[in-house]
Amino acid sequence: MRRILAALLLLLGGGVAAAPVVVGDAIPASLTGSPGDAARGRAIVLDRQRGLCLLCHSGPFPKERFQGDLAPNLAGAGARLSEGQLRLRMVDGRQLNPDTIMPSYFSLDGLVRVGRAWQGRTVLTAEEIEDVVAFLAGLRD
């Protein structure tokens, strides 16, 4: 049921019928079929209500106050990881580390007691995932 929902969301959000295909430790294909927008991705990463990334991560954002230290620094993420690898880490990092504390931004699998306002919704849409991936891919040093 959850899987069907996720597939449905994909359909609505991105116009792609199949669930993301994982190859090795990556999702090579764009979830929407087209590349994301890095500037929009940056805004999502910095937004503490949408991306929430800086709750846990710090990154090369000298003007941002209050960055978290629960997770690796995002600087150089695009040099360490390919777009496909970044995409899988955003979609569902549990596939690489079942105990990860990083939320799965594009999966509804196994969630418990989700708040009413958030039910049936992934944290980000397919388009937003692509925007964030495009931004992270550009963090080269």
Partner: peptide, 9 residues
């Protein structure tokens, strides 16, 4: 110890 919510923590 139960993971919960959309953020699954």
């Amino acid at each position: 110890r139960e993971r919960r919510g959309q953020l699954n923590l």
